[in-house]
Design a binder for these strands. Structure first.
Length: 592
DNA sequence: GCCGTTTTCGGCCCGACTGTTTTCAGTCG
């Protein structure tokens, strides 16, 4: 059965092949948009295609034509026009599009004029001088750039093309901190997908507000001379593109302070959100670009004719002038936010008042109970839950029942010793492959809180995985399902349960579904968390603390939650102590 | 190929940078 990713890949491939063969750019964009929609869909599209095919057309950018292709793919495992395009284009050609500075037009010229049909044949053509004299491509400088692009492509083969947010954002913050010290710089912000809180980013966008043109030159100089720059990809008066040693690309843009808001809006994206904003501006007789929102759509561009913008200095004034609430960056994905009449007050890091998933040295954590409690206190939390692994997680030194019972006593003693914070005695109990929990109910009943998580058998088929999670949710002693799919970002896919079914059951039984905040996990992912919200389930945002620094991952979990539209009143970590006790007790018939 | 608070047809965002060009094509985000 084809996965959503398979369908998305097929559409991406269609788009690439159409580009190379000179198809309509709008058609290419439509396939790209559809690929994105399919990749982000929380539901199994093949199931939808066979059971309720009409529902496909309700999706963003999916019309009758693309819906019929999804149905074709779901039922036959292939698409006729994709096969046709593949037959018309050498199989090694699309890979050329991955070369820096090489787009569809260049690929087409290389193919039709130069007889190039793969990266390998391009490499030999460069070496043999066969490209010399080719229109636009055959000049010494262009050939040198192609050679560099091929070398980088071959060297980077197998290296990650995207970076996890928890790796990229700290790099961006270091760059931003450096540029803030440059004279004449008024403000520096990270924009792009990192600001939107996506789980992975392809590059980093750093926006620099400058007080005068001279500052732009200093910023440029400071950026290119940073430690770790392996290549300067572009360097102009308002833009510098760099590649860092570990492969991450950083784009630094310099803008006048007066236009900072417009530029921040523009460079935060998403691209699709921006397109919709601009269309909205046009519909109101306005013109939106990265310099501002202008009362005019003539040519040349209004900022070049000295026309004063309606709004430009900050994002909120631009949204307001477009008759909209300010959309939080995490929600700027063209998922219907343009239709909002007011913005929800989404959960913030400051709303989080307890951590409900943490490990100690008793299993595989690095902190003893007391140190963990002190860490939680330092974060201003009223409660920390000690949830060491259960016995099935032997590799994590999971606790036998006897050890667990002694550990509960140790937790009680620590709570009395530390003071000023409540320490819950809990467990992260394995959800075994068949849905049974790793401790029996009698043992679970002794705990204040139970986080039930899958750790093994993560390649189960979707139906089995769904039943497995449902079984855990129905257990009356379970409060939270921890990292429900077990996926590792850029690592393993994990389980693919029917998230709507799981979320509906969680809502019915009062079980919270966790957004594990570790940037390797972010599980639930954004689309799953959104489905959970829509089903009415409660959300937990937990750091799954194994070491002190893990507490700093909270922001990634919160960003993921915000992408899903999670509000504080739907997040159990935002409850005050009384509210938390009530929620925990609800599952025990009011025992607390 | 999609889509509709002017539209079921005729639109579909916008500018910077590079390398080639005597005014622009291609790529990128």
């Amino acid at each position: 059965m084809a996965s959503n990713a398979d369908i998305a890949n097929a559409f991406e491939e269609m788009a690439a092949l159409l580009e190379i063969t000179g198809g309509s750019g709008f058609r290419v964009s439509a396939y790209r948009r559809a690929a994105r929609t399919c990749a982000e869909a929380p539901d199994d599209l093949c199931v939808i295609a066979t059971r309720v095919p009409k529902q496909l057309e309700a999706m963003e950018g999916i019309g009758a034509g693309l819906a019929s292709r999804i149905i074709e793919f779901a039922t036959t495992g292939s698409m006729a026009d994709l096969a046709e395009l593949r037959a018309a284009v050498p199989p090694g050609l699309p890979e050329l599009l991955e070369l820096q500075g090489v787009g569809p037009k260049t690929v087409r010229t290389l193919w039709t004029e130069g007889g190039i049909d793969s990266v390998a044949s391009l490499k030999s053509a460069i070496e043999s001088g066969a490209l010399e004299g080719l229109l636009r491509i055959g000049t010494p400088k262009s050939i040198a750039n192609l050679r560099e692009a091929v070398e980088h492509h071959l060297a980077a083969a197998g290296a990650p093309k995207r970076f996890r947010i928890g790796q990229a954002l700290p790099v961006g913050e270091a760059v931003a901190a450096r540029l803030r010290t440059v004279a004449g710089v008024g403000r520096v912000e990270i924009a792009g997908s990192a600001r939107r809180g996506r789980e992975t980013v392809g590059d980093l966008d750093v926006l620099v507000g400058i007080h005068d043109d001279a500052a732009g030159g200093r910023v440029s100089e400071s950026a290119v001379s940073m430690e770790g720059v392996s290549k300067v990809l572009a360097r102009g008066p308002t833009k510098v593109s760099l590649r860092l040693a570990h492969g991450l690309q950083v784009d630094v843009r310099m803008v006048p302070m007066a236009a900072f808001g417009a530029a921040l809006l523009y460079f935060t994206g998403s691209k699709e959100h921006n397109v919709q904003l601009r269309e909205r501006a046009i519909a109101r007789g306005l013109h939106l670009n990265e310099y501002g929102l202008f009362p005019d759509d003539g040519s040349p561009a209004p900022q070049e004719r000295g026309i004063a913008p309606v709004a430009a200095a900050d994002e909120a004034s631009i949204y307001a002038a477009l008759g909209m609430p300010t959309i939080p960056p995490e929600c700027r994905e063209a998922h219907g936010e343009l239709g909002w009449t007011e913005a929800p007050r989404l959960v913030e890091v400051g709303d989080i008042r307890c951590e409900l998933h943490a490990h100690t040295t008793e299993s595989d954590g690095q902190l003893p109970i007391v140190a963990l409690a002190e860490l939680a206190k330092s974060r201003g939390f009223h409660t920390i839950a000690v949830t060491d692994h259960s016995r099935a997680s032997a590799q994590a030194n999971g606790l036998s029942v006897e050890r667990l019972l002694r550990h509960i006593d140790a937790v009680r003693a620590a709570e009395a010793a530390v003071g000023g914070i409540r320490i819950l005695a809990g467990s992260e109990v394995d959800i075994l492959a068949d849905g049974h929990l790793d401790y029996d109910d009698e043992t679970l009943a002794k705990l204040d809180i139970v986080v039930a998580s899958p750790h093994t058998a993560l390649r189960q088929d979707p139906a089995t995985a769904t039943e497995r999670l449902l079984a855990a949710i129905r257990n009356p002693f379970v409060h939270i399902i921890g990292h429900p799919t077990g996926r590792i970002i850029l690592g393993r896919d994990g389980l693919s349960p029917d998230i709507r079914t799981v979320a509906a059951a969680a809502a019915e039984h009062g079980v919270a579904l966790e957004i594990n905040a570790h940037w390797m996990r972010l599980d639930l992912r954004d689309s799953h968390a959104r489905a959970a919200m829509e089903a009415g389930a409660m959300i937990a945002i937990n750091c799954d603390i194994h070491a002190a620094e893990d507490a700093d991952n909270l922001r990634y979990g919160v960003m993921t939650a915000r992408r899903a539209g999670v509000t504080a009143d739907r997040c159990v970590n935002c409850l005050d102590r009384t509210g938390l006790d009530r929620w925990l007790g609800l599952r025990r018939g009011g025992r607390h």
